[in-house]
Protein backbone atom coordinates (compact mmCIF):
# COMPACT_ATOMS: atom_id res chain seq x y z
CA UNK A 1 0.00 0.00 0.00
CA UNK A 2 1.14 3.49 -0.80
CA UNK A 3 4.68 2.58 -1.74
CA UNK A 4 4.53 3.65 -5.38
CA UNK A 5 7.54 5.77 -6.25
CA UNK A 6 7.48 8.84 -8.44
CA UNK A 7 8.89 7.00 -11.44
CA UNK A 8 6.17 4.34 -11.29
CA UNK A 9 3.48 6.93 -10.68
CA UNK A 10 4.60 8.93 -13.71
CA UNK A 11 4.71 5.79 -15.83
CA UNK A 12 1.09 5.04 -14.93
CA UNK A 13 0.04 8.65 -15.60
CA UNK A 14 1.64 8.50 -19.06
CA UNK A 15 0.03 5.16 -19.90
CA UNK A 16 -3.43 6.34 -18.87
CA UNK A 17 -2.94 9.45 -20.97
CA UNK A 18 -1.81 7.43 -24.02
CA UNK A 19 -4.54 4.82 -23.72
CA UNK A 20 -7.55 6.87 -22.69
CA UNK A 21 -6.60 10.49 -23.34
CA UNK A 22 -7.15 11.19 -19.66
CA UNK A 23 -4.54 13.65 -18.42
CA UNK A 24 -3.76 13.22 -14.74
CA UNK A 25 -0.41 15.00 -14.79
CA UNK A 26 -1.83 17.99 -12.95
CA UNK A 27 -3.21 16.07 -10.00
CA UNK A 28 -1.58 16.07 -6.59
CA UNK A 29 1.00 13.34 -6.33
CA UNK A 30 0.10 11.94 -2.92
CA UNK A 31 -3.50 11.48 -3.96
CA UNK A 32 -2.53 9.82 -7.25
CA UNK A 33 -0.09 7.47 -5.56
CA UNK A 34 -2.87 6.42 -3.24
CA UNK A 35 -5.49 6.13 -5.98
CA UNK A 36 -3.22 4.04 -8.18
CA UNK A 37 -2.45 1.73 -5.26
CA UNK A 38 -6.18 1.46 -4.69
CA UNK A 39 -6.78 0.68 -8.37
CA UNK A 40 -4.12 -2.02 -8.42
CA UNK A 41 -5.70 -3.58 -5.34
CA UNK A 42 -9.15 -3.32 -6.90
CA UNK A 43 -8.03 -5.09 -10.07
CA UNK A 44 -5.88 -7.56 -8.06
CA UNK A 45 -2.66 -6.45 -9.75
CA UNK A 46 0.53 -6.43 -7.69
CA UNK A 47 3.20 -5.26 -10.14
CA UNK A 48 3.29 -1.80 -11.69
CA UNK A 49 4.48 -3.22 -15.01
CA UNK A 50 1.48 -5.56 -15.13
CA UNK A 51 -0.82 -2.66 -14.34
CA UNK A 52 0.70 -0.56 -17.10
CA UNK A 53 0.37 -3.44 -19.54
CA UNK A 54 -3.29 -4.04 -18.62
CA UNK A 55 -4.05 -0.39 -19.26
CA UNK A 56 -2.16 -0.15 -22.53
CA UNK A 57 -3.87 -3.31 -23.83
CA UNK A 58 -7.21 -1.76 -22.91
CA UNK A 59 -7.99 -4.67 -20.61
CA UNK A 60 -9.37 -2.22 -18.10
CA UNK A 61 -12.46 -0.35 -19.28
CA UNK A 62 -12.29 3.43 -19.22
CA UNK A 63 -15.48 3.87 -17.18
CA UNK A 64 -14.34 1.28 -14.69
CA UNK A 65 -10.97 2.97 -14.32
CA UNK A 66 -12.57 6.38 -13.97
CA UNK A 67 -15.02 5.13 -11.37
CA UNK A 68 -12.33 3.66 -9.17
CA UNK A 69 -10.04 6.64 -9.64
CA UNK A 70 -12.56 9.17 -8.43
CA UNK A 71 -12.71 10.04 -4.78
CA UNK A 72 -16.19 9.25 -3.63
CA UNK A 73 -16.25 9.92 0.03
CA UNK A 74 -17.98 13.15 0.71
CA UNK A 75 -21.06 13.19 2.90
CA UNK A 76 -24.64 14.33 2.56
CA UNK A 77 -24.73 17.76 4.21
CA UNK A 78 -21.01 17.73 4.93
CA UNK A 79 -20.43 20.85 7.09
CA UNK A 80 -24.02 21.40 8.25
CA UNK A 81 -23.19 24.96 9.26
CA UNK A 82 -22.48 25.78 5.60
CA UNK A 83 -25.82 24.37 4.47
CA UNK A 84 -27.59 26.34 7.18
CA UNK A 85 -25.88 29.52 5.98
CA UNK A 86 -26.73 28.79 2.36
CA UNK A 87 -30.38 28.10 2.96
CA UNK A 88 -30.93 30.97 5.36
CA UNK A 89 -29.06 33.65 3.51
CA UNK A 90 -27.74 32.78 0.06
CA UNK A 91 -30.41 30.65 -1.64
CA UNK A 92 -33.22 33.11 -0.85
CA UNK A 93 -31.11 35.93 -2.31
CA UNK A 94 -30.34 33.96 -5.47
CA UNK A 95 -33.97 32.87 -5.80
CA UNK A 96 -35.12 36.46 -6.13
CA UNK A 97 -33.84 36.60 -9.70
CA UNK A 98 -35.91 34.60 -12.16
CA UNK A 99 -33.89 31.94 -13.99
CA UNK A 100 -30.95 31.92 -11.57
CA UNK A 101 -28.66 28.96 -12.04
CA UNK A 102 -26.51 27.03 -9.59
CA UNK A 103 -23.74 24.80 -10.93
CA UNK A 104 -22.09 21.81 -9.36
CA UNK A 105 -19.06 21.01 -11.51
CA UNK A 106 -17.26 17.73 -11.03
CA UNK A 107 -19.57 15.83 -8.70
CA UNK A 108 -18.74 12.14 -8.25
CA UNK A 109 -21.70 11.15 -6.12
CA UNK A 110 -25.11 12.50 -5.22
CA UNK A 111 -23.97 13.93 -1.90
CA UNK A 112 -23.66 17.60 -2.79
CA UNK A 113 -26.52 17.47 -5.28
CA UNK A 114 -29.09 15.90 -2.97
CA UNK A 115 -27.99 18.19 -0.12
CA UNK A 116 -28.63 21.12 -2.44
CA UNK A 117 -31.96 19.83 -3.74
CA UNK A 118 -33.30 19.03 -0.26
CA UNK A 119 -32.29 22.54 0.82
CA UNK A 120 -33.99 24.13 -2.19
CA UNK A 121 -37.12 22.08 -1.59
CA UNK A 122 -37.31 23.07 2.05
CA UNK A 123 -36.85 26.74 1.19
CA UNK A 124 -39.49 26.41 -1.55
CA UNK A 125 -36.98 27.44 -4.17
CA UNK A 126 -36.71 24.15 -6.02
CA UNK A 127 -38.88 25.41 -8.89
CA UNK A 128 -37.23 28.83 -9.02
CA UNK A 129 -33.55 27.99 -9.20
CA UNK A 130 -32.14 25.89 -12.04
CA UNK A 131 -29.46 23.39 -11.13
CA UNK A 132 -26.79 22.08 -13.47
CA UNK A 133 -24.68 19.11 -12.34
CA UNK A 134 -21.55 17.99 -14.17
CA UNK A 135 -20.25 14.51 -13.56
CA UNK A 136 -17.42 12.94 -15.60
CA UNK A 137 -18.82 9.43 -15.26
CA UNK A 138 -22.05 8.40 -16.99
CA UNK A 139 -22.34 5.43 -14.68
CA UNK A 140 -22.35 7.73 -11.71
CA UNK A 141 -25.05 9.90 -13.26
CA UNK A 142 -27.25 6.84 -13.67
CA UNK A 143 -26.65 5.93 -10.05
CA UNK A 144 -27.48 9.44 -8.87
CA UNK A 145 -30.69 9.51 -10.90
CA UNK A 146 -31.72 6.27 -9.23
CA UNK A 147 -31.33 7.85 -5.80
CA UNK A 148 -27.72 7.10 -5.02
CA UNK A 149 -27.89 3.53 -3.65
CA UNK A 150 -26.31 4.54 -0.36
CA UNK A 151 -24.67 2.19 2.09
CA UNK A 152 -26.64 2.41 5.30
CA UNK A 153 -23.62 3.57 7.24
CA UNK A 154 -23.15 6.47 4.88
CA UNK A 155 -26.81 7.35 5.08
CA UNK A 156 -26.47 7.43 8.88
CA UNK A 157 -23.71 10.02 8.58
CA UNK A 158 -25.88 12.07 6.24
CA UNK A 159 -28.82 11.78 8.58
CA UNK A 160 -26.71 12.94 11.55
CA UNK A 161 -25.48 15.93 9.52
CA UNK A 162 -29.05 16.79 8.54
CA UNK A 163 -30.10 16.66 12.18
CA UNK A 164 -27.25 19.02 13.13
CA UNK A 165 -28.42 21.38 10.45
CA UNK A 166 -31.86 21.07 12.06
CA UNK A 167 -33.59 20.28 8.81
CA UNK A 168 -37.31 20.75 8.73
CA UNK A 169 -38.31 17.11 8.74
CA UNK A 170 -37.20 13.66 9.72
CA UNK A 171 -34.58 12.83 7.12
CA UNK A 172 -36.11 9.39 6.65
CA UNK A 173 -38.85 11.05 4.63
CA UNK A 174 -36.29 11.61 1.86
CA UNK A 175 -35.17 8.03 1.37
CA UNK A 176 -36.39 4.47 1.34
CA UNK A 177 -34.62 1.21 2.08
CA UNK A 178 -34.34 -1.51 -0.51
CA UNK A 179 -32.32 -4.48 0.65
CA UNK A 180 -29.17 -3.15 2.30
CA UNK A 181 -29.16 0.14 0.41
CA UNK A 182 -30.89 3.45 0.91
CA UNK A 183 -32.30 5.30 -2.10
CA UNK A 184 -32.94 9.02 -1.93
CA UNK A 185 -36.14 10.40 -3.42
CA UNK A 186 -35.08 10.82 -7.04
CA UNK A 187 -37.94 13.18 -7.83
CA UNK A 188 -35.68 15.76 -6.14
CA UNK A 189 -33.30 15.63 -9.10
CA UNK A 190 -35.82 15.23 -11.92
CA UNK A 191 -35.33 18.79 -13.17
CA UNK A 192 -31.58 18.84 -12.72
CA UNK A 193 -29.66 19.29 -15.95
CA UNK A 194 -26.86 16.70 -16.08
CA UNK A 195 -23.81 16.77 -18.32
CA UNK A 196 -20.38 15.14 -18.29
CA UNK A 197 -18.50 18.32 -18.81
CA UNK A 198 -14.92 18.36 -17.48
CA UNK A 199 -13.90 21.80 -16.28
CA UNK A 200 -10.19 21.08 -16.56
CA UNK A 201 -10.57 20.42 -20.29
CA UNK A 202 -13.41 22.53 -21.71
CA UNK A 203 -14.57 26.13 -21.32
CA UNK A 204 -17.76 26.21 -19.27
CA UNK A 205 -21.01 28.12 -19.74
CA UNK A 206 -21.46 31.48 -18.14
CA UNK A 207 -23.88 33.35 -15.93
CA UNK A 208 -24.09 31.07 -12.95
CA UNK A 209 -25.25 32.79 -9.78
CA UNK A 210 -23.52 30.24 -7.61
CA UNK A 211 -20.96 27.49 -8.11
CA UNK A 212 -20.53 24.86 -5.41
CA UNK A 213 -17.15 23.24 -5.91
CA UNK A 214 -16.04 21.83 -2.59
CA UNK A 215 -12.95 19.73 -1.98
CA UNK A 216 -12.28 19.00 -5.63
CA UNK A 217 -9.38 21.35 -6.24
CA UNK A 218 -7.54 19.80 -3.30
CA UNK A 219 -6.67 17.07 -5.79
CA UNK A 220 -5.10 19.56 -8.23
CA UNK A 221 -1.57 20.88 -8.45
CA UNK A 222 -1.08 24.66 -8.55
CA UNK A 223 -1.17 25.17 -12.35
CA UNK A 224 -4.42 23.25 -12.75
CA UNK A 225 -5.88 24.99 -9.69
CA UNK A 226 -5.10 28.38 -11.24
CA UNK A 227 -6.55 27.38 -14.61
CA UNK A 228 -9.76 26.01 -13.12
CA UNK A 229 -10.26 29.00 -10.83
CA UNK A 230 -10.01 31.24 -13.89
CA UNK A 231 -12.81 29.25 -15.54
CA UNK A 232 -14.92 29.27 -12.40
CA UNK A 233 -14.58 33.02 -12.03
CA UNK A 234 -15.42 33.49 -15.73
CA UNK A 235 -18.54 31.37 -15.33
CA UNK A 236 -19.99 33.46 -12.53
CA UNK A 237 -22.19 36.50 -12.89
CA UNK A 238 -20.89 39.68 -11.28
CA UNK A 239 -21.79 39.27 -7.63
CA UNK A 240 -22.08 35.50 -8.09
CA UNK A 241 -20.88 33.15 -5.35
CA UNK A 242 -18.23 30.44 -5.29
CA UNK A 243 -18.46 27.95 -2.44
CA UNK A 244 -15.29 25.99 -1.59
CA UNK A 245 -14.44 23.41 1.07
CA UNK A 246 -13.88 24.98 4.47
CA UNK A 247 -10.11 24.38 4.33
CA UNK A 248 -9.69 25.57 0.76
CA UNK A 249 -8.68 29.07 -0.22
CA UNK A 250 -8.20 31.24 -3.29
CA UNK A 251 -5.16 32.81 -1.62
CA UNK A 252 -2.74 30.84 -3.78
CA UNK A 253 -4.33 32.05 -6.99
CA UNK A 254 -3.71 35.22 -8.98
CA UNK A 255 -7.14 35.32 -10.62
CA UNK A 256 -8.70 34.60 -7.23
CA UNK A 257 -8.16 38.29 -6.45
CA UNK A 258 -11.28 38.94 -8.50
CA UNK A 259 -13.20 37.26 -5.71
CA UNK A 260 -14.00 38.64 -2.29
CA UNK A 261 -14.19 36.36 0.74
CA UNK A 262 -17.64 37.00 2.21
CA UNK A 263 -17.78 34.14 4.69
CA UNK A 264 -14.43 33.05 6.06
CA UNK A 265 -15.59 30.09 8.15
CA UNK A 266 -17.48 28.48 5.29
CA UNK A 267 -15.26 29.78 2.47
CA UNK A 268 -17.91 31.55 0.43
CA UNK A 269 -16.48 33.96 -2.14
CA UNK A 270 -18.29 36.62 -4.16
CA UNK A 271 -17.25 37.88 -7.58
CA UNK A 272 -16.24 41.51 -7.31
CA UNK A 273 -17.87 44.25 -9.28
CA UNK A 274 -14.91 45.60 -11.23
Amino acid sequence: MNNLGIVDTKKIIATINDSYGLNLADYSLTTLRRRFSHLMGFFSISLVDDFVQQISRNNIGYQELLDELMIDSTELFRDPSLWRELREKYFPEIGKTVGSKIWLPGITSGDELFSLMVSLKETELIDKIRVVASCPSNRRVVKIKEGGAYDLKKMEIGEANYTRLSGKFEFSKYYELKGNKAFLDNSLVKNVEFDNFNISQVMPNKNYRMIIFRNIMIQYNLPLYEKVIRRLVDSLTIGGYLVLGNKETLDHSEVGKKMQLVNETEKIYRKRID
Binding site: S28, T30, N215, I218, G245, K247
Partner: peptide, 22 residues
Protein backbone atom coordinates in the same frame (compact mmCIF):
# COMPACT_ATOMS: atom_id res chain seq x y z
CA UNK B 1 -4.70 18.39 10.84
CA UNK B 2 -8.19 19.87 10.34
CA UNK B 3 -11.40 17.99 11.13
CA UNK B 4 -12.74 15.60 8.50
CA UNK B 5 -9.76 15.89 6.14
CA UNK B 6 -6.60 13.85 5.76
CA UNK B 7 -3.49 16.02 5.90
CA UNK B 8 -0.65 15.26 3.48
CA UNK B 9 2.81 16.68 3.01
CA UNK B 10 3.50 17.25 -0.69
CA UNK B 11 6.72 17.71 -2.64
CA UNK B 12 7.72 21.36 -2.61
CA UNK B 13 7.13 21.57 1.16
CA UNK B 14 3.41 22.20 0.92
CA UNK B 15 0.39 20.68 2.54
CA UNK B 16 -2.49 19.12 0.71
CA UNK B 17 -5.78 17.88 2.07
CA UNK B 18 -7.89 14.93 1.08
CA UNK B 19 -11.43 13.70 1.60
CA UNK B 20 -10.57 10.10 0.79
CA UNK B 21 -12.26 7.46 2.90
CA UNK B 22 -11.46 7.21 6.58
Amino acid sequence: APANYHLYVELGNKFSLSTEDS
